[in-house]
Design a protein around this nucleic acid. Structure first.
Length: 597
RNA sequence: GGAGCCGUAGUUAAGUUGGUUAUAACGCCGGCCUGUCACGCCGGAGGCCGAGGGUUCGAGUCCCUUCGGCUCCGCCA
């Protein structure tokens, strides 16, 4: 930091342009740029600096022929020094244009400049060629964010949010804030808790989503609400999951499912147009939950490539091959031109499906007409072989993978295998955006562990058929819920809500939540439903995940300014951390002794 | 709670069946350089091999423990 003595004041200097907006149209203009020294090319007699700001790069030249003092001083410049330059825009000499640079036709001939700050040598280069570990990037996140790629992600994220706000404002939605300190509720994810100082032994919870508040805003007669809102879930992290994340949360009164979906669709279409200039199909394709599971094995199908699953349970029913013959579900996945797959590749895929509880991976290679290579083919009768060939449409050159067993496992393992094959075989066009709606979800799901039904969506989702249907056969009831899926990721989901107290109580009953517990946990909602709650419904989009897909990022961390590590810590601030004993005392908290062996 | 991959100059990596003084590139420092653009040329400095323990005459390398990062399963209405 030996150059600190040269640091000058900004004074009355004002930036006239951003880097990257100057073109040959500006030649001759007197301008002033401010930014960071990206690259330094000091030829002794002539010094080039690529000046970087949020928007891009511009080459500035220090020449002794133009201003000997400015040139002399510029020898001290190092990467990431902050400077202001005044000078004139000029065309680069013939043959010196740089086609790889937006501003490659021009350069700034510096007549005067100021050093605004020095910089330690950064721990990694500030450029898109990634050469730093995740840990280092997170520790110096403010440097990582200087990289153009990340800056672009946040510019796009900003545009997306602005687009949504404009759209929803035009549609007469009101942006209303809801509490961050709220009440812990059963069901759903683990809550983050905040101890109350004023109320000994009691805790707030951070919201997993503003679900109940937005419903209460409907009861309040706000009619249309939205919020770009932070949500918190204390669950383990993934590449696409952070403990705090942002939702675009919407709710509307006096609407049915179609109206909510039409609104959401229009919002997303406009967002795509205004951020990445992509026209999405209108209306968006739709698929029922049952179709998604049948053809793709998952409730969030990636429709950018084929390879649909095929149910062959009936074909092999009662087969001598017991593994298939007596399985609840048997499905095949035909991969055209997969016959050359090596033993090792198949072994890899076998290991892959084992993650999802599959015991193994059966396969058949169609070598030639009527010539199958397979470890399992000997168990099948001629009739079964015929049936399989026909059902799966097997052709010479194919490999077919099979999974047999409990339905959930078969669908999950084969569905995930399908996605994996899509990746490995290069079947996915990374530029493609394939959004679709998944509808007609079951309302409830039986949880073997707690031996009761749990809500697939959440316990405020309206059942199709009302109270009677719910009481008749809870497991069979569908819900008025809908998810938007993009490229195999769930990016949004919503439902029509229960708006009568009678229905809500029937729902709690179906979930095994007693009247007393319902009162204690959701009394305010039940009360509100008794005061003229309008029919209402809504949807929430996961903003981070959406931006992740729009920017082609492989991790959600690339679109969150200050994300957490997989252990939910912040490497930069070192949160979470211990607190002073006094703080704990005020909160009526005593820490337990650490376990010793 | 579980599985896998990773940790070596500032950074990214190489490091053979355990064997001299631990390599390379980039970066950094010094010098030279008036048309470079990831400038170039010459020279130089820079290491707790994540941490702790063990095996061994000898450990970056083998074993155990532990910390951290990433990916995944469980979990995430």
């Amino acid at each position: 930091m030996e150059h600190q003595k040269y640091i000058g004041e900004l004074g009355d200097w004002q930036r006239s342009h951003h880097c990257c907006e100057l073109t040959s149209a500006n030649i001759g203009d007197e301008i002033c740029l401010m930014g960071w020294a990206q690259y330094r090319r000091d030829h002794g007699g002539l010094i080039f600096i690529d000046l970087r700001d949020r928007n891009g790069l511009t080459q500035v030249v220090f020449s002794p022929e133009h201003n000997i003092q400015a040139h002399e001083q510029a020898h001290i410049l190092r990467t990431e020094y902050v400077l202001a330059v005044k000078g004139v825009v000029r065309e680069r000499p013939e043959g010196m244009h740089n086609a790889g640079m937006v501003t490659g036709d021009i350069e700034i001939l510096v007549s005067e400049w100021k050093l605004l700050n020095t910089s330690r040598t950064p721990p990694f280069a500030i450029e898109d060629r990634l050469d730093a570990s995740e840990n280092l990037r997170l520790k110096y996140r403010y440097l990582d964010l200087r990289r153009p790629k990340l800056a672009r992600n946040f510019i796009l994220r900003h545009k997306a949010v602005q687009s949504v706000r404009r759209f929803l404002d035009e549609q007469n939605f009101l942006e209303i804030e809801t509490p961050i300190l709220t009440k812990s509720t059963p069901e759903g994810a683990r809550d983050f808790l905040v101890p109350s100082r004023v109320n000994d032994g009691q805790f707030y919870a951070l919201p997993q989503s503003p679900q109940l508040f937005k419903q209460l805003l409907m009861v309040a007669g706000m009619e249309r609400y939205y919020q770009v809102v932070r949500c918190f879930r204390d669950e383990d992290l993934r590449a696409d999951r952070q403990p705090e994340f942002t939702q675009i949360d919407c709710e509307m009164s006096f609407v049915d499912q179609e109206q909510v979906m039409a609104m959401a669709e229009a919002m997303i279409c406009r967002l795509f147009k205004e951020t990445v200039d992509v026209e999405l199909p209108s209306p968006l394709p739709r698929m029922t939950y049952a179709e998604a599971l049948r053809d793709y094995g998952l409730d969030k199908p990636d429709t950018r490539f084929g390879l649909k699953l095929q149910d062959v349970t009936d074909v092999v029913k009662g087969s001598e091959f017991k593994l298939f013959g007596s399985a609840e579900l048997v499905k095949g996945l035909r991969v055209p031109n997969g016959v050359d797959m090596s033993r090792k590749e198949i072994d890899d895929l076998t290991e892959f499906v084992k993650i999802y509880d599959a015991k193994g991976l059966a396969w058949i290679k169609v070598k030639a007409e009527g010539e199958w290579q397979s470890p399992i083919v000997k168990f099948f009768s001629e009739e079964e072989k015929q049936g399989l060939a026909q059902r799966l449409g097997m052709q010479v050159g194919d490999i077919v993978f099979f999974q047999a067993g409990p339905a959930v496992m078969v669908n999950t393992a084969l569905g995930q295998l399908r996605n994996e094959l899509g990746k490995r075989l290069g079947l996915i066009d990374p530029k493609k955006f394939n959004p679709l709606w998944v509808t007609d979800f079951p309302l409830l799901e039986y949880d073997a562990e707690s031996k009761r039904y749990v809500a697939l969506h959440h316990p405020f989702t309206a059942p199709v058929g009302g109270v009677e249907a719910l009481q008749a056969d809870p497991g069979k009831v569908l819900s008025n819920a809908y998810d938007m899926v993009l490229n195999g990721s769930e990016i949004g989901g919503g439902s029509i809500r229960i708006h009568t107290q009678e229905m809500q109580q029937a729902m709690f009953q179906a979930l095994g939540i007693g009247e007393e517990e319902a009162r204690e946990k959701f009394g305010f909602l039940l009360d509100a439903l008794e005061f003229g709650a309008p029919p209402h419904g809504g949807i929430a989009f996961g903003l981070d995940r959406l931006i992740m897909i729009l920017t082609g990022s492989s991790s959600i961390r690339e679109v969150i300014a200050f994300p957490k590590t997989q252990k939910a810590t912040c490497v930069m601030t070192e949160a979470p951390s211990a607190v002073a004993a006094k703080q704990l005392r005020e909160l009526h908290i005593r820490l337990r002794e650490k376990k010793k062996d």
